[in-house]
Simulated scan of single mutants.
Amino acid sequence: MTSAIVIFDIDGVIRDVGNSYRRALADTVEQFTHHAYRPTEVDIDELKSEGIWNNDWEASQELIYRYFETQGTRRSDFKLNYQEIVAFFQSRYRGLDPENWTGYICDEPLLLEPYYLEQLSKAGIPWGFFSGATRASANYVLSKRLGLRSPVLIAMEDAPGKPDPTGLLAAVEQLEQQFNLEKTAPILYVGDTVGDMYAVERARSHDPSRMWLGVGVLPPHVQVTAQRRQAYSATLKAAGAIVVLDNVQDLTPAQIEQLVVI
């Protein structure tokens, strides 16, 4: 088959974060608005559709600011303590014990099974990960939950946040070095947000000599109704997704081959 490289986002693609990251985000906004406002799933999706709120700590802060603006308070008139926001968020997501996590992260359903990645490897398709999650959080799911051994991973600490494509480019470069690949293979980045698709567009602008494809995946929380599925799918396609899948494992080697010969 046509050679290709696949890079995966993690949150909403590899694991369901609807009741973990998103729940921690909503808890945080509620806490810092003095329990006056708790964002809904739709509220969070609308914010993330702007394409620049991949970092959930920053997204929490922005929703807090926006709430107070609706109450007639200008954000220039008060300043939130960002580190306090991060600490509270992490107390919910990881739990209170920094060594033994007991928070929402412990109950995240997996959206991918190891055999799927083995299938890609057998087909000669190199793969890795570029995520806005912290390295510790990403490794929790990749190593502890999926049993992967030192996969290529560019995490929050390693590159600017999406839609900046630096992390995507770095993941591709690591795989090229690891597998001694020529710098001509098509690149597929699999993500669930507008920011993910924008990162692909920017990578294409950085290196227009090769094929860059954004593959959208519908996170579980938008699959509850046909209307939300259709709306979210349309948003991802408008942001540049060449295809939108219900589950990451639908991106089979055969599907990849079809996409890269378009």
Rank of each mutant, 00 (worst) to 15 (best):
Pro39Trp: 07
Pro39Tyr: 04
Pro39Leu: 08
Ile44Val: 14
Ile44Cys: 05
Asp45Asn: 14
Leu47Arg: 02
Leu47Ala: 08
Lys48Gly: 07
Lys48Asn: 13
Ser49Arg: 13
Ser49Gly: 04
Glu50Ser: 12
Asn54Lys: 12
Asp56His: 09
Trp57Arg: 00
Glu58Cys: 10
Ala59Ile: 10
Ala59Gly: 11
Gln61Val: 04
Gln61Ile: 01
Glu62Gln: 14
Glu62Tyr: 10
Ile64Asp: 00
Ile64Lys: 01
Ile64Phe: 09
Arg66Met: 01
Arg66Asn: 11
Phe68Ala: 02
Phe68Gly: 03
Phe68Met: 04
Thr70Glu: 05
Gln71Ser: 02
Gln71Pro: 02
Gln71His: 05
Gly72Glu: 03
Gly72Gln: 08
Gly72Cys: 12
Thr73Gln: 12
Arg74Glu: 13
Arg75Ile: 10
Arg75Asn: 12
Ser76Asn: 06
Asp77Ser: 13
Asp77Thr: 13
Asp77Tyr: 13
Asp77Val: 06
Phe78Gln: 02
Phe78Glu: 01
Phe78Met: 03
Lys79Asn: 11
Leu80Pro: 05
Asn81Thr: 02
Tyr82Val: 04
Val86Leu: 09
Ala87Ile: 06
Ala87Gly: 10
Ala87Pro: 10
Ala87Leu: 06
Phe88His: 14
Phe89Glu: 06
Phe89Pro: 12
Gln90Ala: 12
Gln90Asn: 14
Ser91Val: 02
Ser91His: 08
Arg92Val: 11
Tyr93Lys: 01
Arg94Leu: 15
Arg94Ala: 10
Gly95Val: 01
Gly95Phe: 06
Gly95Asn: 03
Gly95Tyr: 08
Leu96Met: 07
Leu96Arg: 09
Glu99Arg: 06
Glu99Ile: 09
Asn100Asp: 00
Asn100Phe: 12
Trp101Ala: 03
Thr102Gly: 03
Gly103Val: 07
Gly103Asp: 07
Cys106Asp: 10
Cys106Gln: 14
Cys106Trp: 00
Asp107Cys: 05
Asp107Met: 02
Glu108Arg: 04
Glu108Ile: 08
Leu110Phe: 07
